[in-house]
Design a protein around this nucleic acid. Structure first.
Length: 269
DNA sequence: GATCTATGTAGAT
DNA sequence: TCTACCTAGATCG
């Protein structure tokens, strides 16, 4: 369940639960076994997220880099530690907490230079204090590519995924297929500021909520929508359902292999 | 039990 | 633009 907010939330959680003490690291499944043995028993120095990438820093032995991909997950459990069930790529056991990582796209041990290289190819992350939104604008304002594709490009913006993309475009009335270069600079500033706001809420509550109070189904009388990703949203996975603002059926199409959702009335092209 | 789907990305074509 | 990959829960029959 991974957009940037999930990874930042995990970084915060892992720092709180494991940093400053030795961690038992293993790979019950075996695919990370050699690397796990190199950090097993080491003190976790820190954890941080950059976009959708998570880094566990063990000092000299190296940094564990995790990318969850589409369906990677970390559990969050307390002792007693139980036998692994299913495919557990990495298991971390601390004093008071333990976690199993399943289904990641990446789980590897890197050195500092390799971590820097990953960060260097990512655009600004709305959840990081050191983010420079102008770097994203430089790319967007010069591009013929649609804003919908640009927002998902991790080299342009880091951490935004399919849900935040659809929702932020809706909140600003932007047609998904608008070319980046046609986007108004002031509107871009608003979109960035909104991403910072929305994604911080996401880190805090652990789900993606984007609907303003006056548009919540409670207030409008429109049918509530419960999705397994758990958040309250305007358009994501609401194909054919009435727009929470104007009632128009939400549209859907496949764009570059990903599901795109928008309201044709609120986001006119 | 088989099939489908997903908040993602990299590499081949 | 396509395909492969990693996994589990939902849905289908």
């Amino acid at each position: 369940m991974p957009e940037g907010h999930t990874l930042h939330r995990l970084a915060r959680l892992h720092k709180r639960q494991y940093a400053g003490a030795p961690v038992e690291v293993s790979s019950p499944q075996g695919r990370f076994a050699v690397e796990a043995s190199k950090v097993d028993g080491q003190v976790l120095v820190g954890a941080e997220a950059y976009g959708k990438h998570l880094f566990h820093d063990y000092g000299p032995p190296g940094i564990v880099h995790v990318h969850l991909g589409l369906y990677g997950t970390f559990s969050d459990l307390k002792p007693p530690v139980t036998e692994p069930v299913g495919q557990v790529r990495m298991r971390m056991v601390g004093r008071e907490h333990w976690t199993d990582l399943r289904g990641p796209n990446r789980c590897e041990l890197l050195d500092a230079a390799q971590v820097d290289a990953i960060k260097a190819r990512l655009g600004p992350d709305p959840l990081r204090r050191d983010a420079k939104p102008d770097l994203a604008w430089e790319r967007i304002s010069r591009s013929k590519v649609s804003v919908a594709v640009l927002l998902m490009d991790q080299a342009v913006l880091a951490g935004v995924g399919n849900v935040y993309r659809a929702e932020v475009l809706f909140r600003h009335g932007v047609a998904p297929m608008l070319p980046g270069k046609a986007l108004d600079p002031a509107l871009w500033k608003d979109i960035w500021a909104d991403l910072v706001l929305l994604m911080r809420v996401g880190v805090r509550v652990g789900r993606i909520d984007t609907v303003r109070p006056e548009h919540l189904p409670k207030a409008t009388g429109r049918a509530p929508r419960v999705d397994r990703h758990g958040g309250e949203v305007y358009v994501y996975r609401r194909t054919g359902m009435p727009c929470l603002v104007c009632g128009t059926p939400i549209a859907h199409k496949d764009l570059a292999g990903r599901n795109l959702y928008w309201c044709p009335t609120c986001q006119p092209s």
